[in-house]
């Protein structure tokens, strides 16, 4: 569906994207995470045939970037980072122009479909210049989908939106996923990536890591279980440290934190041991690191 092999982009002496190799399967939502200036937008521009790679190769739906650019543009939708519209024209006119440029057969039908789907039908005759940021973003998303692309690139789709508008956009992306489209999202919103993406990549000029959000957590922290005790946990780590399946122990106040691969199998043994030795366990839970923790650690450590 989307493949890149050593995809590289240089601007003079600056390397914006360095030997990016990726494979994204059809129908998946792929999160592309990285700090500002990491080269995310440059990557999206290369993959949508807006700019040419300096080296390497990329194919979208089997079409090669730099060789089949018109076919790529016909089959790909893009929500740019700052999605400009024609402010003096109505929402309906804005979409009609793009539907015509994308060679859509039923222009009026497609425009109506997406204006209704994104809750903008009632405002179709209003100039876009009067729209709120959320409405503009929704209109820009509609624009990127008018030609029913199989691959959609969304660059910061919820950036600057209020929580309600952001949720609406996220729900819409989830709907698109349900339709079997391949979605490539550049985002800073790690919670959003966690919720929407099947796989995420952390990128800073070079690809740092790519995995499922769950897989990334596991790679970074393993699985961790927290035992909340009635009194301080200091000293209790020695009681369990010799168990063969315990990888690491840590105490914080009255919390005993244990790293292990298979808590479902081993938790009963640990609980039994602690109780037998007199620990007063109040409750047990799995410590779930946010994707943000993983991301920050990856971006900072290299």
């Amino acid at each position: 569906m989307i493949t890149t092999e050593n995809l590289t982009k240089r601007f003079g002496d600056n390397v914006a994207v360095d030997r990016l190799t990726l494979q994204i399967a059809e129908g998946k939502v792929f999160g592309f995470l990285g700090p500002n200036g990491a080269g995310k937008t440059t990557t999206v521009r290369m993959l949508t045939s807006l700019i040419a790679p300096t080296n390497g190769r990329a194919t979208i739906l089997g079409y090669e970037v730099g060789k089949d650019d018109q076919n790529i543009r016909r089959n790909v939708g893009i929500l740019t980072e700052t999605p400009g519209m024609y402010d003096r024209l109505t929402a309906e006119r804005n979409l009609s122009i793009y539907a015509q440029l994308y060679e859509v057969r039923d222009v009026a039908g497609q425009v109506e479909k997406y204006l209704r789907m994104l809750g903008l039908w009632e405002r179709r005759h209003d100039a876009v210049g009067t729209f709120s940021k959320g409405m503009r973003q929704k209109l820009a998303i509609a624009r990127s989908l008018l030609h029913e692309p199989r691959v959609v690139f969304l660059d910061e789709p919820t950036s600057g939106l209020d929580p309600e508008a952001a949720k609406l956009v996220r729900d819409f992306i989830a709907e698109l996923k349900g339709e079997g489209r391949t979605i490539f999202i550049c985002t800073h919103n790690l919670d959003e990536a966690d919720r929407l993406c099947d796989r995420v990549a952390v990128f800073k000029t070079q690809l740092r890591v790519v995995d499922t959000p769950q897989g990334l957590r596991k790679q970074m922290y393993g699985r961790q279980v927290v035992f909340h005790l009635a009194e301080t946990a200091v000293g209790w780590e020695t009681a369990v440290a010799n168990l063969p399946f315990i990888k690491r122990t840590q105490t914080v106040d009255n919390k005993l934190i244990l790293s292990l691969d298979d808590p479902e199998t081993h938790n009963p043994d640990i609980i039994r041991l602690l109780v037998n030795q007199g620990a007063a366990i109040q409750f047990v839970g799995e410590l779930r690191h946010s994707l943000e923790d993983v991301y920050l650690q990856l971006v900072q450590e290299r």
Binding site: T48, S49, L50, Q70, R73, R74, V76, I78, T80, T82, P83, G84, M85, Y86, D87, Y98, L101, Y102, E103, A140, R143, S144
Partner: peptide
């Protein structure tokens, strides 16, 4: 004008030569 209003990039992303 297209560039300053950020409408050029989506325009260039369409299959227009």
């Amino acid at each position: 004008g297209e560039k300053t209003s950020h409408s050029l990039e989506p325009l260039l992303a369409t299959p227009i030569t």
